[in-house]
Design a binder for these strands. Structure first.
Lengths: 109, 109
DNA sequence: CAGGGTGCTACGGAATTCGTAGCAACTCGC
DNA sequence: GCGAGTTGCTACGAATTCCGTAGCACCCTG
């Protein structure tokens, strides 16, 4: 199974290690963006996260969570479950304009 | 092969048809974000786009381009090649903060 | 002990993606 | 007309990724 993309190292589709390429590799994997999105309201347990993501397989969820933890975007808090780190919240904030845009996209497209 | 995600219809991983879910499905497919990114500087031909994306297979490139055209984000201009539509440029603009963020992410993560 | 929660793994099959080869159409120079 | 070059795009078998179900080990409460 493909390893977690890391800045400075080659990723799927690019050998430069440029941060944007690493990010595109990470976010281009199925469920990754969705998981970050579902954590927007606060921590969720592994199983709650599964349900929020329409019951994706635990295999993939665990793989994605490993990648997101390796990337410093998500952390496992024993008391509350999985949550966005400050870095992950920054990513979510940068992503919010896309959410607002998608509403207009739906009306026009 | 999975059909292009459309707002208002069920997509992979969500039956609600909410625009954000449709967008997450679309962007969560491999190479989709990369293709939009590589078109940031202007139109590219099919083959130039392949090279820009580190030689991804023409099968997948064509599939992604169909999806992006169905979504109204990319158009084929016979004279110049594939280019972002105004809608696609809006998406790219909303995505730019993530690029800037990825630079800091690389330093911290 | 029973019953419920937690994170997580195994495994076989389905879906997606890849890599290579090549087609049909068009344009250019000759 | 005839190549040589471009264009967008397809076929097809193999590799990779993802899915669905079942279930393990652990902890806590009753």
């Amino acid at each position: 199974m493909a390893r977690s993309p890391r800045t400075g190292s080659a990723v799927r589709g690019s050998r430069t290690g440029r941060p944007i390429m690493v990010l595109l590799d990470l976010l281009g994997r199925r469920w990754t963006l969705r998981i970050v999105w579902e954590l927007r309201g606060g921590p969720l347990t592994f199983r709650a996260l599964r349900e929020a993501c329409d019951g994706l397989s635990p295999t993939v969820l665990n793989t994605r969570l490993k990648e997101l933890r390796d990337s410093g975007l998500v952390a496992l808090n024993e008391a509350e479950g999985y949550a966005l780190t400050p870095l992950g919240q920054e990513l979510l904030e940068r992503f919010l304009p896309l959410v607002e845009w998608s509403e207009r996209w739906a009306r026009r497209g």
